[in-house]
Design a protein around this nucleic acid. Structure first.
Length: 515
DNA sequence: TTCCGACAGTGGGGTCGCAAT
DNA sequence: ATTGCGACCCCACTATCGGAA
């Protein structure tokens, strides 16, 4: 199959808003793909490369190459060159990557270049990722979409399911079961604004502490233990504490879901930055483990002794968890039978926060494990702080925000009467707000062309209310701190910049963080 | 007809590892 | 040794489609 065909379909998919039409377009293409094309076409159309990330970013792609006039490149040829690209290492790697990308781009038409660029930067932006590809796959093969989706979650990979399905038909789906040693996509939580709201929504539920660490899925099959992240990357080698903890458990075969976090000598959790830095360390794991030891803390079990527990209600899964994992290695929790237990649940949240944790996750006791779903059966509740800050500048948006000032630079007042930038945010804005702030900020502009035209600097006059989850240390910003997960709540045109919050007050409100 | 679940898009900061400078 | 880039952790929120109620 020619790459041009994929580029063409991708453009058509991007051009329609109707999901049903996107699905039909993908299904038609899947039907036409030859067997050898399948493992390439499937990920390409979900906007991913089968090789994963290739060490190619905007820097390598910034060298323009004249496009070919006629489409001759096949998907297999393109894939072969990208595989070659992925093998480049060592000195001169960047030059060699630039050369390979250049030769690939030179063989591609303008349309194909656009598509390849999107693949390499992870920005295909056609409004169809895995979920739509799954629908298209079901349509192309006559399989039940829900069964395909489930198989993908259990395989942890769209590609393997697609290959089996297109080769053998819907019967192949039965093969994809939970298997110890093969990671599945983890269940995720939605947000709720209060414990009371969450408990009222879910009825009988568990309220569990939410630890601010790294999500892990631990598989043990006898002596073989594997640890995977939320995106199913294998991080076994970085977490010797987790493998030894799994080895000490009495079960021989199981799959556990939990969080890895580092506790200080005082028993309080270290900051997310410290835990994440530790888990990210690969070169000298023993040294890193000596400085920042981590502990696994589990909250769910997906399989035990060959029994698949995914479809059991959470209450039963937790009973299995309690049999397998001793209490100190499980998250703290309380159980609420219904709204009458809201006061107890709120006390539990307050206690959890006092112990230095992030918040709670409220989980319906009757819900199965929805692998890969961000379902409403798990609701996280975290405290939200707000500040009134001043807009110092704004950046032009991309994609659907093209032509709108999107990303705001936020400042707090300093002692000398100026403003210190605390970070940026593009979150929380409606289309109406985007249009309004674009107009308003251009009126306040003092420099429309900063940073190569990306940034519009403005007079610091516009006050905006910002919600955030917490403060963290920063080497990038002048106050030495930055906001975590900042988002816009509303503009405060009733406030003058002299009434905005100060850096001093912010630091005083978060004594646990020292710049 | 209206409501709501699921999805895609739009990017944020930090840290680590590797190659370039 | 320092700097720049890419990968991968954590993540919030809005708009939209299309099936459920």
């Amino acid at each position: 199959m020619l790459l041009a065909r994929l580029a063409q379909v991708s453009r058509e998919v991007a051009a329609t808003a109707a999901r049903s039409r996107k699905t039909a377009l993908l299904a038609e293409l899947f039907r036409d793909a030859e067997a050898d094309d399948v493992p390439i076409v499937i990920p390409y159309l979900a906007g991913r490369l089968p090789q994963g990330r290739l060490g190619v970013g905007w820097k390598v792609l910034s060298h323009p190459v004249p496009p070919a006039a006629e489409p001759t490149l096949t998907v297999r040829e393109a894939d072969a060159r990208l595989t070659e690209l992925g093998r480049v290492r060592g000195a001169g790697a960047q030059a060699e990557r630039t050369r390979i990308v250049g030769s690939l781009m030179g063989a591609a038409t303008a349309d194909e270049q656009r598509f390849l660029r999107g693949l390499l930067t992870g920005e295909v932006r056609q409004g169809a990722l895995d979920a739509v590809a799954v629908e298209g796959l079901a349509q192309a093969t006559g399989a039940d979409p829900a069964a395909v989706r489930r198989a993908v979650m259990l395989a942890g990979s769209l590609q393997t399911v697609a290959q089996a399905l297109l080769a053998e038909g819907p019967g192949a789906l039965d093969r994809f079961r939970l298997t110890v040693g093969r990671p599945v996509l983890p269940m995720l939580a939605q947000s709720a604004s209060s414990v009371a709201e969450a408990v009222r929504k879910l009825g009988a539920c568990a309220v569990e502490e939410k630890l601010d660490g790294i999500r892990v899925q631990v598989h043990r099959d006898g002596d073989t233990i594997r640890v995977h992240t939320r995106t199913l990357d294998d991080i076994t080698g970085r977490l010797p504490e987790v493998t030894s903890a799994a080895r000490e458990l009495t079960g021989e075969r199981f799959v556990l879901d939990g969080e890895v976090i580092s506790f200080g000598e005082d028993g309080r959790p270290r900051s997310f930055q410290e835990t994440a830095g530790r888990v990210g360390s690969r070169t000298d794991v023993a040294k890193a483990a000596g400085q920042v030891p981590v502990s696994p803390v589990f909250f769910d079990v997906l399989s035990v002794d060959g029994r698949d527990l995914l479809d059991l209600p959470f209450a039963e899964r937790h009973a299995e968890l309690a049999r397998l994992v001793p209490e100190p290695m499980r998250v703290r929790r309380t159980v609420a039978a219904g709204p009458e237990d809201i006061p107890e649940a709120e006390r539990f949240l307050a206690d959890t926060l006092a112990r230095g944790h992030e918040g709670v996750v409220v989980k319906a006791l009757d819900a199965p494990y929805g692998a890969g779903r961000r379902g409403a059966a798990w609701l996280k509740v975290k405290p939200v702080h707000t500040l009134d800050l001043v807009v110092l500048a704004a950046e032009w948006g991309h994609g659907r925000r093209t032509g709108r000032l999107s990303n705001l630079h936020l400042g707090a007042r300093t002692a000398d009467g100026g403003f210190a930038m605390l970070g940026k945010t593009f979150k929380g804005m409606t289309d109406v707000m985007l249009a309004w702030q674009t107009k308003r900020l251009r009126e306040l502009a003092v420099d429309e062309d900063a940073d190569d035209g990306w940034v519009v600097r403005v007079r610091p006059e516009l006050v905006v209310e910002i919600a955030y989850d917490g403060l963290q240390r920063s080497s990038r910003y002048p106050a030495g701190v930055t906001l975590r997960f900042a988002r816009v709540v509303r503009y405060r045109e009733d406030k003058r910049p002299e009434e905005a919050d100060t850096v001093e007050a912010l630091l005083a409100a978060h004594p646990e963080v020292t710049p």
